[in-house]
Amino acid sequence: MNGTVDGFSYGLVTPVAAYVMACLGAALGLRCVARTLHYEQGRRAAWLALGAACLGCGIWTMHFIGMIGFQVVQTSITYNVPLTVLSLVVAIVVVSVGVFIVGYRGAAPVPLIAAGVVTGLGVAAMHYLGMAAMHLDGELHYSTPVVALSVLIAVAAATAALWAAVTIRGFLPSLGASLVMGIAVSGMHYTGMAAVSVHLDATAGHTAQGRTPTSLLLPMLIVPVVFLLVAAVIVMFDPVLILGDGEWSRGGRAGRREQPAPVEPSAFAPRSADPSRPQPHRR
């Protein structure tokens, strides 16, 4: 018997909240990666890591906020805690790989495509790993064409996000890019959810070990949400965001002009008089 799947049991609350978190993670990630243009290698790595963590947390938070609204009418759903935590780790790690590739290699076609494919496949793996953490009285079945479409959307969204991170400058363009990224990431999630059907086992009792969505997901969401808010405070005090890329660059150049490099004496420059040497008589 097929179960009745409802992905919007709380109406528009969960998809809108999921979209907002996806946009927040994308916006913070884009600004952190853009910040690397103004720092040397050591600080660049720190900003890239912060940007990757923001993107990964935003994607994971979006996914599980959306999953709070997912239910099967005929059975309850529980979640395996280790698999749920592992999905968060996967999200951050794979996004970090893509961000560091483009952060050090730039948006050239080969590194960008490689980073986009790795990141997109990782995001899709995070999604389906989170789905595997679900336990219910039945089995989940997936439509292969729809799953393939969701993976393609994930790769395209990841590639576009990484390209935007290293090419788009300025606050308003980055904000617009983050809104588009939120649509793409949310679209991947709900496309993947559209591939799901549930075949119920009417003879089995619900004996799966785990925790309900509200008892597990809501407390778990607190940590990445707080992290994103703290990262937002850090980015808001970013001089590039406050002054703008152009003003910060001009300020940096002005600072460098205040400390000119020492000029080496020229071989043809006149030498200082040596009192021990006789000087030619001038008429």
Rank of each mutant, 00 (worst) to 15 (best):
Ala273Gly: 09
Leu218Ala: 12
Pro213Tyr: 02
Val226Lys: 02
Ala269Cys: 08
His127Tyr: 03
Gly138His: 06
Gly252Ala: 14
Gln209Glu: 15
Ala202Lys: 05
Leu175Met: 09
Gly69Ile: 00
Thr207Ala: 13
Ala208Leu: 07
Val99Arg: 10
Leu175Tyr: 05
Ala165Arg: 03
Leu217His: 06
Ile168Pro: 00
Ser174Pro: 00
Ala133Gly: 09
Ala164Ile: 06
Ala49Lys: 03
Phe171His: 09
His135Cys: 08
Pro173Tyr: 02
Ala132Asn: 07
Val97Met: 07
Val16Thr: 05
Ala165Gly: 00
Ile77Ser: 00
Leu136His: 13
Ile68Asn: 00
Leu179Arg: 02
Pro111Asp: 10
Ala273Glu: 15
Ser150Asp: 10
Val81His: 01
Ala267Tyr: 15
Gly252Trp: 11
Gly246Met: 03
Thr36Ile: 08
Met220Ala: 12
Ala157Phe: 08
Pro275Ser: 08
Phe171Met: 07
Ser150Leu: 12
Ser96Arg: 11
Arg31Tyr: 07
Leu162Tyr: 02
Gly130Asn: 05
Val73Glu: 13
Gly210Phe: 03
Ala194Arg: 03
Trp47Val: 00
Ala133Arg: 10
Asp238Phe: 01
Ala157Val: 10
Ala156Trp: 00
Met1Thr: 12
Leu129Pro: 06
Leu55Phe: 15
Tyr10Lys: 07
Thr159Gly: 06
Arg105Pro: 07
Trp248Gly: 05
Cys23Asn: 10
Val93Phe: 14
Gly251Asn: 11
Phe8Glu: 12
Arg211Leu: 15
Arg277His: 10
Gly205Asp: 12
Asp274Met: 06
Ala267Asn: 08
Trp248Arg: 11
Leu149Ala: 15
Thr144Cys: 01
Val20Ile: 12
Asp245Ser: 12
Gly244Ile: 01
Ala125His: 01
Leu86Val: 13
Pro82Gly: 05
Val233Trp: 04
Val102Asp: 12
Ile168Phe: 09
Arg253Ile: 06
Ala231Val: 04
Phe8Cys: 04
Phe8His: 09
Thr36Asp: 14
Val95Leu: 11
Gly252Lys: 15
Leu24Asp: 14
Val13His: 00
Pro109Ala: 02
Ile242His: 02
Gln259Arg: 14
Ile234Ala: 05
Leu28Asp: 12
Gln279Leu: 13
Ala161Glu: 00
Met126Leu: 08
Ser9Gln: 10
Val72Phe: 12
Thr78Phe: 06
Met134Gln: 09
Val180Tyr: 05
Gly170Arg: 00
Cys23Ser: 13
Gly25Tyr: 11
Val240Ser: 09
Leu24Phe: 04
Ile234Asn: 04
Leu149Val: 15
